[in-house]
C-alpha cells in the first residue's frame, strides 16, 4: 500500500504499520499488542475514554493518555507497559472491582468476562482487598425491562450497551441515569405503551456487555436454576 494511506509507528519497540486515521488502541490490538479496555468499541468516532484502562505513554506528550482517543501518527513512539501506566491501570481496575462482591462462580459471565481477562493480564485479584467493598446504593438486581435484568454492582458503566443500542436501533431504549457513584443504566419507559416500542429485543446490549451485568431474564433464571441444582448435588 502507498505511504499516504499507511502510517508507521513504534509500540514497545515493535514497528507496526496501520491505515491512517486508525485509533492507537485498535492499531495495537490488531497487531497483537494487548491493551486492556472496556469502553472502546470499533467504529466509534469519539470514544468516551471513560474506563481509563487503555492508558499508554507517547514520547513527546505529557502524561499517560487513553490510547482509544489518540489517532496514529507517523513516527509515533508508544510505550504500553511503563510503571506509571501499570500503576494507573491497576488502580482503575481495583476501583472497578470494589463495587462487586467477586463471586464469579455465581455469574453468567464467568470464564468469558472481560474483567477476568484483565485481572489475569494485570495479575490482580477479582475481589477487592486494599480498598473497601462499597456496593452501589441500589438493588442487587433491577428488573425494569420486561425481559432484560440488570445487575448494577457488576456493571462497570463502560457504556457499550448505550452505544450499541443507539447504533442498532433508530432510537435507543436504554441510557445512563442518575449521576456520580450511583450512575446506572436505565430502561425507563420500556414498560410503557408506545415508549416501550423502542426496544426491539435485539439483545445487542446483552451480547456486548463485557461483564455480564445485562442478561435475558429467561436465560438468567435457567442459569441460576442449573447452578442451584449443581450446588445441591
Amino acid at each position: 500500500m502507498s505511504k499516504d494511506v499507511m502510517v508507521t509507528l513504534t509500540v514497545d519497540g515493535l514497528e507496526i504499520s496501520v491505515p491512517r486515521g486508525t485509533k492507537l488502541l485498535k492499531a495495537c490490538l490488531d497487531n497483537g499488542i494487548y491493551i486492556p479496555s472496556l469502553c472502546y468499541l470499533d467504529g466509534m468516532d469519539h470514544p468516551p475514554a471513560s474506563c481509563r484502562l487503555c492508558l499508554v505513554e507517547i514520547e513527546g506528550r505529557p502524561g499517560p493518555l487513553p490510547s482509544c482517543s489518540q489517532t496514529v501518527e507517523d513516527g509515533m513512539v508508544v510505550h504500553t507497559e511503563t510503571d506509571e501506566v501499570r500503576l494507573l491501570q491497576k488502580t482503575a481496575f481495583r476501583l472497578l472491582v470494589s463495587t462487586n462482591d467477586g463471586k464469579c462462580r455465581l455469574c453468567m459471565a464467568n470464564k468469558h468476562c472481560e474483567m477476568q481477562k484483565i485481572a489475569k493480564f494485570l495479575h490482580m485479584p477479582l475481589r477487592t482487598k486494599k480498598l473497601r467493598h462499597i456496593p452501589k446504593d441500589m438493588p442487587e438486581v433491577i428488573e425494569e425491562h420486561p425481559c432484560i435484568v440488570y445487575e448494577p454492582n457488576k456493571c462497570v458503566l463502560c457504556g457499550r450497551c448505550v452505544y450499541i443500542c443507539s447504533q442498532q436501533n433508530y432510537d435507543f431504549a436504554l441510557d445512563f441515569a442518575k449521576r456520580g457513584f450511583n450512575t446506572t443504566i436505565s430502561f425507563f419507559g420500556s414498560r410503557e405503551e408506545g415508549v416501550g416500542d423502542y426496544c426491539r429485543n435485539c439483545r445487542a446490549c446483552v451480547d456486548i456487555c463485557p461483564v455480564g451485568a445485562l442478561n435475558l431474564k429467561d436465560e438468567r433464571d435457567a442459569f441460576l436454576q442449573n447452578l442451584q441444582a449443581k450446588i445441591s448435588a
Binding site: 432510537d171 435507543f172 441510557d175 436505565s186 425507563f188 419507559g189 420500556s190 410503557e192 415508549v195 423502542y198
Partner: peptide, 11 residues
C-alpha cells in the same frame, strides 16, 4: 426515548 429524558432529568 423515555430513557434519554429520564437520564437527563436524573442527572
Amino acid at each position: 426515548p423515555g430513557a434519554k429524558v429520564f437520564g437527563v432529568a436524573t442527572f
